[in-house]
Design a protein around this nucleic acid. Sequence first.
RNA 1: GCGGGGGUCGCCUAGCCUGGUAGGGCGUGGGAUUGCUAAUCCCAUGUCCGCAAGGACCCGUGGGUUCAAAUCCCACUCCCCGCGCCA
Length: 420
Amino acid sequence: MFDPKLIRDNPDKIRNMLEARDVDFPLDELIKLDKERRELIIKTDELRKTRNQISIEVAKKKKSNEDSTSIMEQMRSVSDELQRLEETQIRAEDSYKKLSLTLPNLIHESVPTGKDETANKEIKKWGNIPTFDFKVRDHIDLTQSLDLVDLERAAKTAGARFYYLKNQLVRLNQSLIQFALDFLSEKNYTPIQTPYMINKSSMEGAIIAHDFEDVIYKVEGEDLYLIGTSEHAVASMHSDEIIEGKILPLRYAGVSPCFRKEAGAHGRDQKGIFRVHQFEKVEQFVFSRPEESWSEHEKMLLTVEEFYQKIGLPYRVMLLSSGDMGKVSAKTYDLEAWMAGQNNYREIISCSNCLDFQARRLKIRFRDKTNEQPQYLHTLNSTLVATTRTMVAILENFQTKDGHISIPKVLQKYVGASTI
RNA sequence: GCGGGGGUCGCCUAGCCUGGUAGGGCGUGGGAUUGCUAAUCCCAUGUCCGCAAGGACCCGUGGGUUCAAAUCCCACUCCCCGCGCCA
């Protein structure tokens, strides 16, 4: 969501963004609605002014026992008219708000313009791609032969894209969470385990409403939605708050399961645990001062890199193009880990600066002095570890000739074993 | 789930019974005055419209009654206390 003034004064800025994102949006209609809405505000305000004035008169006359029937008659007609006008004004306000909530975020100048992922830019690369003197297997194969995942029975009980984790993979999953929490705690992040369901207004604050359908599960008969990531719950956590400036940046390590419909992903990554409806994730979420958000963004990426260097997973960092980026983000880095079984880099991390986009929707502001005008802060989010995908990378890259997995050194103490 | 109490402009609080411009304190900022690590006083301190002057809105949310609602009525919601149920 934007400051209405920005849309009014710089429509070209918005227009350029829409073009870069390749999004169809009735901007002229929004501008028209804004004008209507403001005109109606002026009219109703004036009417309220007269009503307030008359009301004072009535009170005076009543006090001095004067006759007030005629003035009350006047008041009645003003009130009637006001009620009619208010209705149209509220309707205008609603349609403006509804439409403006579907407008995507602005784009940072460093973001490459392009329709899709082909325009993404590789920023850096780390690690050596492992070589094997035996036939490399993919994670599906490995998890079957080592009895680590049961997909067939999950399909029976829940459906496609669900899984039962088994044996040491359960431990590896927990170990990644634990390691990630330890890692972020050392960097003074506040660990936070969120509600797994949040209400509609919170969800709308974090993401754009019509993106719900393909991504978010709704709980039937309740005003509740399963979170797609702890980001949704952490972002809305401070909604309607004015935060003391001195405690910024606020860095949270969100832990939660994530639930995703994955509608529209038919045929892609059909098997295995790479693309699933449910997984655990440790997330970095930062509330920052506007002037610090870009440096925070870089810092978050470096934190992610350090984490994967410790595990020892080769990766590359991609800067997403305008068309490939999420609608609430102004700039996104993806970290793609090498996956030996697929002979390719695959996305495991997404690191975004949302500027004041979510903060405006959720009314999250800050100020340094209590008499200062509060201003919107910036929100940033980045995966640290989404367990299933990182496990796929570990399984495939750390496989051994005898068909087992050697566990990365930093994780061994958590798993309690050196091989699976 | 039942019964009781509560939600007021950053924080605390008055006002609600008996409808008529939401008052005070704290904190913070600015100013005034005064010889002293301070006190006292004044102003400012939510949102929206407006270039401004100014105005409107704001008492958990949404309805209703009324010329007029923080105040009366209804519904919902959240918090606190007690009881019940429960991993």
